[in-house]
Amino acid sequence: MKLAFIGIGNVGFSLANNFQKKGHEIIIAHNDVESGSVTKAQAKNTSFLALPIQEAIDASEVIFLATPFKFNEDILKPLEFKGKTLIDCTNPVGAGISHGLESKISGAEKVQEWAKNARVVKAYTIYGFENLENPIFPNHTVKPAMLIAGNNSEAKGKVSLLNTDLGFETIDVGDLSQSLHLEHMTLLWVKMVRANGHHPNFTWAYLER
């Protein structure tokens, strides 16, 4: 697939780099294609193309949003997604590692509000970038789980295929409103690792009897 990345920091680059290794075409979506973040990413992976955001969306099948949440509204409102899949990799984090929207609504639902004609799927948020950079756990037979939420089954199917490429087992938790609970899983992971010193190289798994 052709994949566009709005945001190419730790999360965006980790995903883009791994997907490129799996044979996907990567486009960095940035309105300044010579910005520091773009040139830094291209120095690490010379196969990345860079295009202005709307052009990158038009050229891609799936778009990843991997920006700080506070910028999402201004970035998304002017854009035309034409029914394409938009993967929300962002989290609204408030003071003291709290939910930035006071748990009244998920960040993903706000993303859908701002990107009205996109098919938003929440994914790649319940872990830090370390487990997107290296999602392989060679000593275990159970795959790491990637929980996703969204309102469109076709869009979630595309995300499931991408998850498989990275080695994740997809767990579909329901419609986009379920993203609120995934964002709380993120806060749990962040508090454990960033605040309390737990090592980052762990994921959740799904066992079924």
Results as ranks from 00 to 15, higher is better:
residue 50 A to S: 15
residue 101 L to F: 07
residue 54 Q to M: 00
residue 126 I to F: 09
residue 43 A to I: 01
residue 95 A to V: 15
residue 140 H to N: 11
residue 117 N to E: 15
residue 74 D to A: 15
residue 61 E to W: 07
residue 88 D to F: 08
residue 114 W to P: 09
residue 40 K to Q: 10
residue 80 E to W: 00
residue 132 L to W: 06
residue 64 F to G: 09
residue 73 E to K: 15
residue 98 S to F: 02
residue 95 A to F: 15
residue 53 I to Y: 04
residue 107 G to N: 12
residue 87 I to F: 04
residue 91 N to V: 10
residue 94 G to I: 12
residue 63 I to V: 02
residue 78 P to E: 08
residue 142 V to Q: 09
residue 86 L to G: 02
residue 64 F to E: 03
residue 81 F to D: 05
residue 93 V to F: 02
residue 86 L to A: 01
residue 139 N to E: 08
residue 84 K to I: 01
residue 84 K to R: 07
residue 53 I to R: 09
residue 52 P to Q: 04
residue 133 E to V: 03
residue 83 G to V: 02
residue 95 A to N: 15
residue 51 L to H: 03
residue 97 I to R: 11
residue 114 W to S: 01
residue 92 P to L: 06
residue 133 E to T: 05
residue 119 R to W: 00
residue 100 G to C: 09
residue 70 K to S: 14
residue 42 Q to M: 01
residue 142 V to W: 00
residue 112 Q to Y: 11
residue 92 P to A: 14
residue 85 T to H: 11
residue 118 A to S: 12
residue 56 A to T: 06
residue 137 F to M: 10
residue 77 K to T: 08
residue 58 D to V: 01
residue 60 S to T: 07
residue 118 A to N: 10
residue 73 E to T: 05
residue 61 E to M: 05
residue 117 N to A: 08
residue 119 R to E: 15
residue 106 S to E: 13
residue 48 F to N: 04
residue 49 L to N: 00
residue 113 E to S: 03
residue 99 H to T: 02
residue 61 E to R: 06
residue 97 I to T: 14
residue 103 S to T: 13
residue 65 L to P: 05
residue 74 D to N: 10
residue 96 G to Q: 12
residue 63 I to T: 02
residue 51 L to I: 05
